[in-house]
Simulated scan of single mutants.
Amino acid sequence: MDVSFAPGRFAGLEHHFVLRVYFEDTDLSGVVYHANYLRFMERARSDMLALAGIDQRAAHEAGEGAYALREANIRYRAPARLGDELVVVSRLVRLRPAAVDIHQRVMRDVTIVAEAEIEAVFVAPSGRPRRQPAAWMERFTPLLFKGN
């Protein structure tokens, strides 16, 4: 992935990904449809990984594997609406040989709109968990958030 195109950025240990709510993201009432928050968070995670130097596509094409979500616990706190500018803030909170835990919150200014605890597992093409590449672990370690 060409990171010069990546729309996000790191602010210390947190990755910030800005997006705007479009009509296609909303339901009939003009509020963001609940499933779309997962899409917003996925885009932010992909951007964060690319900026950290993780080439998911190359790993997949080389037959090494890819990340799959094992768990996503999401809490909706306030509605986002058509035209809102949101920021998805992501931080790595736990790193294990085959998995990474990421806390994400979707913000509108200072208001938390939604937040989630995500567990992503690195899986072989067979779908079984396997150790993620050592180089990825090395890139993640300095980004690991230690604290609340």
Rank of each mutant, 00 (worst) to 15 (best):
H16S: 04
A59P: 03
A98D: 13
E14A: 11
N36I: 10
P133L: 07
Q132H: 07
V32D: 09
F10N: 01
L144Q: 10
A68K: 08
E14F: 04
A62G: 01
A80I: 06
L82P: 03
V32I: 02
E115W: 02
A114Q: 09
D55K: 12
G8P: 09
T111V: 14
D27R: 00
R39P: 09
A135E: 13
L13H: 09
T141P: 00
T26L: 03
G8W: 10
F40L: 08
I102H: 04
Q104R: 06
S29V: 05
D25E: 06
P7R: 07
I54F: 10
L13W: 02
W136P: 00
D27S: 01
A52K: 02
E64T: 08
E14I: 04
P133W: 04
H60D: 14
G53A: 00
H34G: 02
A44H: 07
G127M: 13
L38I: 07
A68C: 07
I112H: 00
V100I: 15
E117T: 08
G30W: 01
R131T: 15
G12M: 05
A35Q: 03
M1Y: 11
M137F: 04
Y22Q: 07
A114C: 06
V100Y: 11
G63M: 01
V93M: 08
D2H: 11
R94V: 10
Y33M: 01
A120K: 05
L69P: 14
G8Q: 04
V89H: 03
P79S: 05
P129D: 13
S29G: 08
R45E: 12
S46H: 03
V89G: 00
R94E: 15
R45C: 08
I54S: 00
R9C: 07
G63C: 08
V88T: 14
P79K: 05
R39C: 02
V87P: 10
D25M: 01
H16R: 13
L69Y: 09
L82R: 00
S4K: 07
G83I: 02
A99Q: 15
V21D: 01
T26E: 10
V89Q: 10
L82I: 08
F10E: 08
I102D: 11
A98C: 06
D109K: 06
